[in-house]
Amino acid sequence: MTEFLIYKLIMCGAIFGITLGVAAYSTYAERKVAAFLQDRIGPDRAGPYGIFQPLADGLKFMMKEEIIPVVSNKFLFVLGPCIAMLTALMAGVLIPWGNTIVINGTAYPLQIADLNVGILYVFGVVSIGVYGIMIGGWASNNKFSLLGAIRASAQMISYEIAMGLSIIALVLMTGTLSLNELSAQQAGGIGSDWNFWNVVYQPVGFLIFLVCAFAETNRTPFDLPECETELVGGYHTEYSSFKLAFYLFAEYINMFVSSAVIATLYFGGYNFPFMNDLGLDHNMITTLGTIALFLKIAFFIFFYMWIRWTIPRFRYDQLMNLGWKGLIPLAVVNILVTGFIVLMTNN
């Protein structure tokens, strides 16, 4: 029992630390990628190549004056960023970060909790995330914040439908909701045991999921909730100091987690090509698999930034058009086609 507790505590601590670390360095990566895509250099003053920039930014956030507007609802004003941060961190619990590690004959899966309704839990937690933005924006008692919050909630609810529908097609195909099983099913890949990742069977579903993930994390081209040109800062206009940092940080954690979910659902999770042909022992394969998963996540985080500096922001009616008239019908058709093919192949 104590062994189990220690193992779970280590897992929780490690994943918490890694999540925060990745989120912190995503801010650095964002600025560097932005710079490189625009033929600039980016931050390079704090340490070699500016690698201490996140520490400097964090320190700056801590030293800033903490302002709570007098007209705001103080309790909700503080609660907003807390919910945003909490839900962002909670979603990472279910990601299978690797296969099992065998120590003294006991197999330890590199996952905090393996729920059999894994994806549904992720969806549930991500949906609560919108409350953080809603509450924060509403409690600020500011027109711009409220507009940003309303936009955020409308956008997230719209795109959650398409996202859920795109997942249904995947679930029809794989027959499981557990993220761990989804990863295990994609094992092998190219090599002696011929087995493709889910993206090969579900390209349309992947595309819908990817677009919705951009909308869910409020990233460009769907960053209307915090669109600077119209809404000052959107839902976090009135926020300063560490509460603002919480909101911004939550966005980067969401990015990290959604990249991990995309990698797990569609890109084989911790599996990599030729993994069964290398002839390495189990623990070694697991370690390499975890590295492979993090490389995939890194690619998707880069992809988020890459898109950010390529595509301009959508107009609000375009956003709603795309969601309701484009992605949702497409997702329904995808379900129909997938269901038909599954029915045919199973008979």
């Binding site: 710079a35 490189f36 895509l37 625009q38 033929d39 600039r40 250099i41 390079d44 890459w306 898109i307 500096w309 390529t310 595509i311």
Partner: peptide
């Protein structure tokens, strides 16, 4: 259009920055 866009930005990733430190 998006694909051609990301191709353009990807090419810029490898361009030398003209910045003088």
């Amino acid at each position: 259009a998006i694909l051609s866009g990301i191709a353009i930005t990807f090419r810029h990733l490898f361009k030398k920055a003209p910045t003088v430190r």
